[in-house]
Each structure stands twice: as C-alpha cells, then as structure tokens.
Nucleic acid binder design. Structure first.
Lengths: 242, 242
DNA sequence: TTGACTTATATGTCTAGACATATAATCGTG
DNA sequence: CACGATTATATGTCTAGACATATAAGTCAA
C-alpha cells in the first residue's frame, strides 16, 4: 500500500492527503467499513504534523465520507442512498438557462384577511392579512408552470405594496427575504379544468406538483404550489454516494 | 455588537464561534454580502488562538455559508435557492420507518441479450446481457410502488445468479456495489392499464415517476423506474439556505 | 460467565508561533 | 487621468508540541 504515490503537485499537502483517501474510497479499494490508517500512520507516511492529517480527515468526516470514532479509528462510511441533491432552480433562471425566452404573467392578486384555509396552509394560528397571487411562467410563449402563492403579511409587510405585475413574487421574495428554510413536497395530480386551461393541456393530463413552504426563524413566510405539465417537465437530481 | 454573549457552555470553543456566526446569518442580522469580523478580531473577542477561529470559519466556508477572500475578508454568501436535499429512502426502510409492514413481490425476471431499447436505457453502446426485473413493494399489503429495473451484467455479473424472489434488487445491489453515482429524474404520468392493475388504482389516475440511473466509475450499473400512486405518495425535500 | 474496574490509545481540541500567497489599496509615473 | 509597480494585509497552510475525552480492550472479582 503506497498511499503517497500520487505526486501530482497539488497546491497543498492536506488536500493531497484528502484526495488520496477519497480516491481509494470512490474506486472501492477501501470499501464501506474499511478502517483508514490511523493519524499517526498517515503522519509517518506523509512526513507531516498531525494537524495536517487531522484537517484532511476532518473534512472527509464533514463530507460524510468517513466516520471517526475515538480510540477505534476512522472508517469508510456506508454510502447513503437516500440523500440526493435536487436542483430546483428559480424558474426564470431555469428557463433562461435553457436558452428559451422567459415570460411572466400575473393572473390574479388579492389582499385579504387570512381565511381558515389560508392559516392552515401557512401553518399559523392567529388571524392576519395575506396576499394571494396566481401567475404563470412561460418558455418561448409556451406555458411552463402555473404558480399559486400565499404570502403572510405579518412576516413580509412590504409584500402588500409590491408590484407583482412585472416581477414574479418568487424573485421579489428572494431579494427581500435574506435567509430561509424551506420544505418541498412533490406529488402528481391530473389536470382539472382550471389547470388544464392555464397550462394549455388536456383535462386529465398528468401534472407534477411542487408544494413549497418557506419560513424564517420558525416563522412562515410563504406557501407556493407550482404545477408543471407532467410529461414535459422533469426534475433532475444527481448525487454521489451510491 | 457583542459576539460572545451566548454563554451556553457548548462542548468546544470553535463550535460555539461557528454557531454564533451561523445564528447571525440565519436570523438575517448579517445579510448576504455582509463582512464577517476578521480572524484577528474574533481572536480578540473570544480570547483564543487564530487556528481556533480559522477552524470555525473554514467549516462555515465548507458549508457554503460564507465566502473567504484573501486580503478582503469573509463574507456572507447569497443563499442558494436552487439546491435542496431530497431524501429518497430505500423503499423498504421508508415503509418500515412509517411503522408499516413491508411486503415484496417479484412479478417478473428475465435474463436476456440487451435489446436496442435496453442499451439505450442503460446508456451503453456494446451488446451484452442484462437482467430485467419487475417487482412490487407494498405497505400493509397495499401497493406502494412498482419497480421496473434493468441491470447490466457486464458491470454486475453476480446479478445473473442472484435470487430476487425474496430480496428486492435495490437492497441486493446496495450490498454488492460499494459506491456509485446516480441521477434521478422525476416526472408525472397517468396510469395505463398495466400500471393501474399493479398499483390497484384507476386507469388515468396520476402517478409519480422516479427514473434512477446508477453507475460506478462511468460504468452504468442499473436503470430503474419507480411508479408511485401520485395522490398518496409524497417526496419531501427540506433545505436550508432559502 | 458476567459485571465492574482499570488502562491504553485514537481522536478532539487548542496554542503560539511561522511563512506563503493572493489581492485591495496606495503610490508614482507618463 | 490612466496604468503599472509597490506595499500592506487577511487568509491559507503548517508545525511541534499540549491536555482532554471517549472507549476498546484487558483485568479481576463475584
């Protein structure tokens, strides 16, 4: 076992150590459960101080490639099949990235006191005002997705006066709400009359649905439902880690 | 600005520093673009060495919460809305995690020379043998998902003799292929006759589709299509960084 | 055999320095 | 003013130590 064979002069030593180990894991040479050389062994092999080796191993641990156990050593982790990175781009960015012309159209906008259904959807208890927005995104003048959004004015007061006739609410919020958490739920439905008309598809055609709930510091900001024609649109998720 | 106010005795200092900064970012107190105090300022504030501060900041940089620029300082990064962690659990684990009884049923298994369609689906050029498997997963004896899988025997020769009548091919592969990359594509369709029967739903009902392509070192291993009843099943993705 | 105690050891964290390096800011010159 | 050279500075990496701490493994008694 010659760990330090790779002599491509990488910028720094700890990165080379990290890359060497990562390579062995990814090629399967060190399978899940395999014990990685102890820090003191790597120190001897690379002729460096323990902190340098420690930094390489810590980063691998942070990336969930290895697991470190006191007294026992460091071990290759089992691949985590269940976790993938799903890229859900901002719709405008997504469409322009495809080299197609982005179109936006505000269908409806209402400012109202929150109904019971609104409060349920936003997950808030107290009554308050909300903005309800319906709009459509299109690519090269072909309907791409319809959006049905609710914004809690208690969390985002500025939304009451914002002009959503030109700018999509998603973009507007992105620039006004600095940091959030969110939850996406993906499901499938068949198009009802209203959806079919908005997306210019047949009634009964499949639709991909993304429900997104966004909040900040445990405070709900917005709930949005996006409907895509199910046979045309695709969400792609790529990941590493078998 | 009193950075070190939080005196909850966290296990270690660098973690406390990291948590303190993370909190300010997540609450929006330090919005995107904001310059974080210099290392030497944090050293003075926390009364520790620079390596301790550096470790905290390095981890925040690795997590893409901040960006570090030589000579300039460290800055809060803009949230990356488009990236979410989508949990797609192993079906068996998913069902048992719900506290429901897992059931598995092999519907069909064929070993054949790859047809043109097979090669296309697996993304391989050369002819070779493949195993085609159709099976069904159920929760408390209710159909949960149907699986339609193709395994490339050139990559996984053992699959030719594996017994898939008891163990789902997904689980089997998980234990035989140490590390892979994969790509998921999510879409929606309406159930055709065969699908409707397998899932015990009506023809024309919505279905959520996950196509998963798995490979290892640029070599395709398996292609699988999972069909879920679209109105019952939901994929949930949560993320931070909105 | 089992459970409680002890010990050895690998990792976890930290220090007080050092030099390297990219680059923002400044200074000088045409 | 524009542009190139210089300088100051914040981060990047690294060292040779130190003590803390969890725990695998061994020891011993009931």
């Amino acid at each position: 076992m010659s760990l330090a064979t790779d002599t491509t002069d990488q910028p720094t030593l700890y990165k080379r150590i990290r890359a060497d180990i990562e390579k062995r894991i990814l090629t399967g040479e060190w399978p899940p459960g395999h014990r990685i050389p102890f820090e003191h062994e790597l120190v001897a092999r690379y002729g460096c101080s323990r902190m340098t080796v420690n930094k390489a191993l810590s980063e691998l641990a942070q990336a969930d490639l290895i697991e470190r156990r006191r007294r026992a050593g460091s071990f290759v982790r089992r691949p985590q099949h269940q976790s993938a990175v799903l890229k859900i781009a901002d719709i405008r960015a997504e469409i322009t990235a495809l080299g197609r012309g982005y179109g936006y159209e505000l269908i409806g906008r209402k400012l109202r006191a929150a109904t019971a259904a609104d409060r349920d959807r936003l997950g808030v208890k107290k009554a308050g005002k909300v903005v309800a927005i319906t709009c459509r995104h299109s690519a090269d003048n072909v309907p791409f997705a319809v959006e049905d959004r609710l914004i809690d004015l208690a969390s985002v007061p500025d939304a009451a006066t914002a002009d959503f006739s030109r700018e999509p609410p998603g973009s507007w919020l992105l620039h006004h709400v600095p940091w959030t958490e969110a939850e996406h739920t993906i499901s499938a439905i068949v198009a009802d009359d209203r959806t079919a008309e908005a997306l210019d598809i047949a009634v009964g055609a499949p639709c991909l649905v993304i429900d997104r709930y966004t909040w900040r510091s445990a405070r709900t900001i917005t709930a949005v439902r996006l409907l895509y024609p199910g046979d045309s649109h695709r969400l792609v998720a790529r990941f590493k880690g078998g």
